[in-house]
């Protein structure tokens, strides 16, 4: 069954909860190799989306809903994660403009646009110890599963597993982007906070897709 505006709102609503629940965890990861604000900043942004959720739920264009989320993140999160996640939602929204419901293939279109936006804005490559390390394998897994005929929930489950592997893969790696890069070798042994929040969001998508039978 295609995903409706109501399903998209459920996705967003669950993302808001998951980021809030992991606020301290993400901040703790960031304090080891960054500036100890990732969870605080992400939670501020998703709480701002929470305030707009009733209004967003009344819209019919899924692309416009995601674009509004992007602008909210850009204006409230700050740091590097604001422009990166903000751009991701903006690009995903732009890719889906005019859609009132989503087919599984739309997930890939939106996801790839989001990842492209992140790479364009942050200029990170795979292996730089960033959110790209979680999202790149996730999108590859999503694409492969959909091509093999999986439904959205199954494909997102594969994407989530790949994101988790990618996230864990940031632990032994030396950071090359962002504030963690100034630590040099001292960044080795720590899991990247951005890759972690990216995994959490992909996992949330998979869980809700399963619940709503997408």
């Amino acid at each position: 069954m295609p995903a409706s505006v109501g399903d998209v709102v459920r996705w967003l609503s669950k993302m808001i909860d998951v980021i809030h629940e992991n606020k301290e965890y993400l901040t703790e990861l960031d304090s080891a190799i960054g500036d100890a604000d990732h969870g605080i900043n992400m939670d501020r942004g998703f709480q701002a989306i929470a305030k707009k959720l009733p209004e967003l739920g009344n819209m019919t264009d899924i692309g416009a809903i995601l674009k509004a989320c992007g602008m909210t993140l850009i204006t409230t999160v700050g740091g590097a994660s604001g422009p990166l996640y903000g751009t991701a939602f903006l690009q995903a929204g732009t890719a889906l403009v005019g859609k009132q419901e989503l087919e599984p293939a739309d997930l890939l279109i939106a996801g790839e646009a989001a990842l492209k936006g992140i790479v364009m804005r942050g200029k990170a490559n795979l292996g730089d110890k960033t959110m790209v390390d979680a999202l790149t394998p996730a999108m590859a897994a999503l694409k492969e599963a959909l091509a093999a005929g999986a439904n959205a929930a199954e494909a997102l489950e594969k994407a989530s597993a790949a994101a988790e592997t990618g996230m864990k893969g940031t632990i032994p790696v030396q950071a090359r982007k962002g504030r963690a890069s100034y630590l040099g070798e001292r960044s080795i042994g720590h899991q990247d906070p951005g890759a972690t929040s990216s995994f959490l969001l992909v996992r949330t998508m998979a869980e809700i897709a399963d619940e709503v039978g997408f």
Partner: peptide
């Protein structure tokens, strides 16, 4: 030149 500042000012 800080990652966050650069990206926010570019946007």
């Amino acid at each position: 030149n800080y990652t966050g500042d650069v990206m926010n000012f570019e946007m």
